[in-house]
Amino acid sequence: MKLGLVIDLDTCVGCHACAVACKQWNTSGTTGPLTDYDPYGENPAGVWFNRIRSYEVDDYPNNKTVNTPMSCMHCDDAACVTVCPTGASYKREEDGIVLVDQSKCMGCNLCAWACPYGARELDEDSGVMKKCTLCVDRIYDEALPVEERQPACVMTCPTSARFFGDFDDPNSEVSTLVRERSGYAMMPEVGYNPVNKYLPPRQRPKAPTIEKKEAATGQTLIGKWMKRQKDAFNDFGKGAR
């Protein structure tokens, strides 16, 4: 069995519900707590297993916002496991889930350094590394109804952009989605063979835009101002870093 997630970048709206559900479930789960160091203060920094970032792909008028939830990819060739000196990091033979045995971790950070996806975060309070467990304490819980034996992030996603399943089964939902929608792995060139896959945004006809030529040519005073704003907006982020 090779368990993992498929995340549909076409339907994800970047609402962070998966991250919140993850934190809510896992903070009292087997690898909890997901400590917040200053929960009601100025800088409520803390541990999260799932982070959502938003990007702008391509330039106007072909630009598109893409939201990317990222958690542990449960890589087939997980370097976070091989670099770990204490044996705290391990990949389960039976289902491929990568876990941290918190009673063995010495908090050296080397696994977080080895991870290209930012999946591991050190809990400064307990001094051990924490990461996504694929809700290992949910998916095998026979006290739960069968349809709820899924990771909390998948259960909660309001747009159904997240799918959980077995990649070793060619007819599973996740395998079918990857096959039919050209699912891909992030940063494959590092060579870790991540199990989690992302479905690219679907091709859609270009949304009609009204070309306000007069305003954009910079003839009138307001036109000049608008052109400046438009240029500034289009240049935003270009050449930064």
Binding site: I52, A112, E121, M186, P188, F236
Partner: peptide, 23 residues
């Protein structure tokens, strides 16, 4: 290559965290 969008420019819009992170 990190995000898989290799045919166009990619810019960060929102990093997703409002306070400090381990990373």
């Amino acid at each position: 290559t990190a995000l898989g969008f290799t045919r166009a420019t990619v810019r960060l819009l929102d990093v997703g965290n409002s306070s400090d992170t381990f990373h």
